[in-house]
Simulated assay, not measured.
Amino acid sequence: MLQSLVVDHLLLESGDAVWVDARGNGTTQQLCQIAPTMRVLDRIHIARGFTPWQHYSLLTDLPDQITEDTSLVVLPEFDWFYRADDLRRGQGERMFSEAVSRVMELLDNVDVPILLTLSERDDFAEPLHNAVSETVECELTKYGPRFSGDSFETLVYPLENGMVQTTIAYWNQILAARHPAVVPVTSSPEVTTVGAN
């Protein structure tokens, strides 16, 4: 699902994605399955750490990796490394808090959206909850992943037979565009997922 959001972003926007991976979310196999062309994959630059210290070091170096061509920063399962059992008591919390501070500094210095996910939503991740500007919920449905947030939602799902499953919100947008006097425009923009809207 994260991979779908990244590929869809790159298909809609020019520029590259800088990805600091955790837990194997940025594998080529997953990305190749959803990318319509290999040229899209050339625009995803992935760095991998295998320990909390390596991940933290990659975050420290992240500002140097962002160029004028960067249109998205991806930080999957951002908290995962800092929950490791091999860290001393309290060390994971301190490293995570400092990692959140690094991301906040990055947001202050560059105008690039950051797509960040968590491995768990609990008190440990609280420092991040206070810093997030928008939360996107993902729900697995029988038609595919449904993304929803304050400013968008998934409106159309692709079916295997080449057809699509639409939502009521989708038809509200169609009616609002064609008959604005009948239906007020209050629907949020749509989100594409795996080539569908």
Rank of each mutant, 00 (worst) to 15 (best):
T28M: 07
L75M: 07
L31K: 01
S71E: 08
K142C: 09
V110S: 02
G149S: 15
E13T: 11
M95K: 03
R39M: 08
L155P: 04
L118A: 08
T192N: 13
Y82R: 06
D42N: 15
V7Y: 03
M163Q: 13
E77R: 07
N25D: 09
C138T: 14
E77K: 04
E77H: 10
V18T: 12
L59H: 09
C32L: 04
F147Y: 15
S71C: 13
Q165L: 03
V73A: 07
S101M: 04
P145F: 08
D108R: 14
I46S: 08
R43T: 02
N197G: 10
R178T: 09
W53F: 12
D108Y: 07
A177Q: 13
M163L: 14
W80H: 08
E98N: 09
N109F: 06
T70Y: 02
G49Q: 02
D111P: 08
A99R: 00
L175E: 09
T167E: 09
T141F: 02
W19E: 08
Y157K: 01
T67Q: 08
C32I: 00
L118T: 10
V191A: 15
R48E: 09
E120K: 10
L41E: 11
I34C: 06
E93G: 12
V136P: 01
T154H: 06
R94E: 15
I34N: 01
S133R: 08
Y170M: 04
D21E: 09
E98R: 11
T117S: 15
I174E: 09
D108A: 12
S57H: 11
H45I: 03
E98Y: 08
T192F: 15
L10M: 07
E190Y: 14
T135W: 15
R43Y: 13
S188N: 13
R48Y: 03
C32V: 00
N172R: 14
V182A: 08
L140D: 07
T117E: 06
R43S: 10
V136M: 14
S71Q: 10
D64A: 12
T51L: 05
S133L: 12
E126Q: 12
A84P: 01
G92S: 11
P145E: 04
F124A: 01
T117R: 08
D61S: 14
L59T: 10
L128Q: 03
L155A: 14
R48T: 11
